[in-house]
């Protein structure tokens, strides 16, 4: 039998550490796009081991797993431990749609004192802690790319984008990060 295929990461070797800002590709994770009506949430939450959030911009996290509210019937479920989320959902009889997007998306960890300024170079949302608190998540735009922003700390965001947009998103973050501090 032929040898097993190896993974190649789109942002292999890219990172940036500057004054008040650091950029690093997140490690691989399993991800699904989960769609379901309200009636199915209890069953899906139980299977996933976390309460799927129902408030806009909210997220729920338990250990390596997180569910981000993206729309009224849409969640991005991320498992940094690589658990088989498709298999977990397949065991749920309640109406839902789960689609594997582990390779469609990737994440960049953006952190540091200047994190809001760097993201606001191209994201038009208000990212102050008051309006975008730790745990908040939202699909939005970053320049000419679509991203999912998830605040994982006062000074840290998990930025998710599609694989082929990663070079652009990382490049723009890098350009904004290198700007002389303001």
């Amino acid at each position: 039998m032929a040898e097993t295929a190896r993974r190649t990461f789109a942002l292999e070797g890219r990172s940036y550490d500057g004054d008040g800002i650091s950029l690093a590709p997140a490690g691989p994770a399993s991800r699904i796009s989960l769609r379901a009506p309200a009636e199915s949430l209890a069953a899906l939450s139980e299977a996933l081991g976390l309460d799927l959030p129902v408030r806009p911009k909210a997220s729920a996290r338990k250990n390596a797993r997180a569910a981000l509210w993206l729309g009224p019937d849409e969640w991005l479920v991320i498992d940094e431990g690589g658990a088989d989320l498709m298999a977990i959902c397949a065991r749920v009889a309640a109406l839902h749609s789960a689609v594997d997007i582990s390779h469609r998306n990737l994440a960049i960890l953006v952190s540091g004192r200047r994190v809001e300024d760097v993201l606001n170079a191209a994201c038009p949302q208000d990212l102050s802690v008051a309006r975008f608190p730790v745990g908040a998540a939202s699909r939005t735009v970053f320049g000419k790319a679509e991203i999912v922003l998830w605040r994982i700390g006062e000074d840290a965001f998990h930025v998710e984008c599609w694989r082929s947009f990663a070079d652009y998103v990382f490049g723009l973050l890098d350009a904004a990060g290198r700007e002389a501090v303001r």
Partner: peptide, 13 residues
């Protein structure tokens, strides 16, 4: 006017 919008890069609704 009454018009349709889509929050295409948000909740997609």
């Amino acid at each position: 006017v009454f018009e349709r919008w889509r929050h295409i890069h948000g909740c997609a609704r």
